[in-house]
């Protein structure tokens, strides 16, 4: 496989052909926020948090979906990019109903974590306070669409890893929502195996275990790496931390 050389934030790196910019950055511990991307799932480039600037290309490109090219000169942390990332998080926050203080995911939430990371201190956009539904019909889990950021991790893990394909994206624009089955109640779907994978990969308090209260929902994401490495390499890594 061909080796490509590229420049990231002034330093030279080499990468395998076909690798994404994000892969290279992660290999070399170059920090960049991501939300929809999750190692082990397919890549969709939905959240746009990982956007980078590539010299010679007028638009911003998501690092998670863009493949490396020979001679690419990439900037990952310019003021403009930082500003856009803050805007993205602010838009996500104002589009749903995020009241962290009473949320099951408080202190264990990726959205919250990202807000700190990008230095979001104030949301300047008007909050939309949409009326979203909460589905508690499943015996073990709850879906609160008020906190969903539409990253589609649940959709992908359920389809790609569990093979059940319970989740889908319905509607457009502001009405876009994650639904179960053909927009049935979760508890009514016959395909759900109650494996809990969607709950664990969900970055926010949108999916959680029934009965948990404020700040009690900690997600164990190690399982994904465990399953993937077991399947692909026939190796068994630790379930809890993926080591």
């Amino acid at each position: 496989m061909a080796i490509k050389t590229l420049t990231i934030d002034g330093d030279q790196y080499s990468a395998q052909e076909g690798e994404t910019i994000l892969t290279v950055m992660r290999q070399h511990n170059i920090p960049i926020p991501t939300l929809c991307h999750l190692e082990g799932l397919s890549t969709v480039g939905a959240c746009r948090l990982c956007v980078v600037q590539v010299e010679g290309i007028p638009k911003l490109l998501p690092a998670c979906t863009t493949r490396v090219e020979e001679g690419m000169v990439i900037h990952t942390a310019t003021d403009k990019l930082k500003k856009y990332r803050r805007m993205i998080i602010a838009l996500l926050a104002s589009e749903g109903n995020h009241v962290c203080a009473v949320c099951v995911a408080n202190n264990h939430c990726e959205l919250q974590e990202l807000a700190y990371q990008v230095g979001l201190v104030r949301v300047r956009y008007p909050y939309l306070f949409p009326k979203k539904s909460l589905d508690a019909t499943h015996k073990e889990y709850v879906m609160d669409r008020n906190r969903c950021v539409l990253c589609t991790r649940c959709v992908r893990v359920c389809d790609e890893v569990e093979g059940a394909h319970v989740w889908d994206v319905a509607g457009r624009g502001i009405n876009c929502e994650i639904v179960t089955g053909l927009d049935d109640a979760w508890g009514k779907t016959e395909t759900c195996t109650s494996c809990g994978k969607c709950v664990m990969v969900c970055p926010t308090g949108a999916l959680f275990e029934k009965g948990v209260t404020v700040a009690e929902m900690e997600k164990q994401k190690g399982f994904l790496k465990y399953i993937i490495t077991a399947r692909q390499k026939k190796e068994w890594v630790s379930f809890t931390d993926g080591q």
């Binding site: 009473v102 909460l134 029934k210 009965g211 209260t213 404020v214």
Partner: peptide, 9 residues
């Protein structure tokens, strides 16, 4: 519309 478990919080 909220869950009973959330109410104390």
């Amino acid at each position: 519309g909220r869950l009973v478990w959330e109410m104390p919080g």
